[in-house]
Amino acid sequence: MLVNQIAVFLENRAGRLQALAKTLSDAKVDLVSLNIADTSDFGIVRMITSDNKKAESALKLAGFTVKSNDLIGIEVEDVPGGLTNILLGLSEEGVDIEYLYSFAHTKEKKAIILFKTSDVEKALAILKKHNIN
């Protein structure tokens, strides 16, 4: 499945992440997952929220630079080897992964894996072949 994510540019100075979190809480948006890619000079926050559209407009209004895009999301069993099999399938077909992160549904004992790839169509086809949604 495709999962919509929003990416936010974060300057490397104190208080920026807090400002971002406050903007979301003021807009009554709930965070589903939060991930930060950082360099020594800046960070990119990648997140999925309860309402990405609302989050995006609130953040833009607050002066943040925001882009939304789709990631491939897959549900895997929260057991050893859950990710390995999927990655094997993808690598065998030559699909590369730009980045990947995950979060866990504690209640359902399932993990959600999200990844970015340059070839979405191919990745989806491979996953379908392996009966993964």
Binding site: Q5, A7, F9, A37, T39, D41, F42, I44, R46, T65, K67, N69, E98, Y99, K116
Partner: peptide, 18 residues
């Protein structure tokens, strides 16, 4: 200031500009 158009979810595109 970075231009909004070049920003993406990937570090490498921002890092390239820098």
């Amino acid at each position: 200031e970075m231009s909004e158009a070049i920003f993406s979810d990937e570090v490498k595109s921002v890092e390239k500009v820098r």
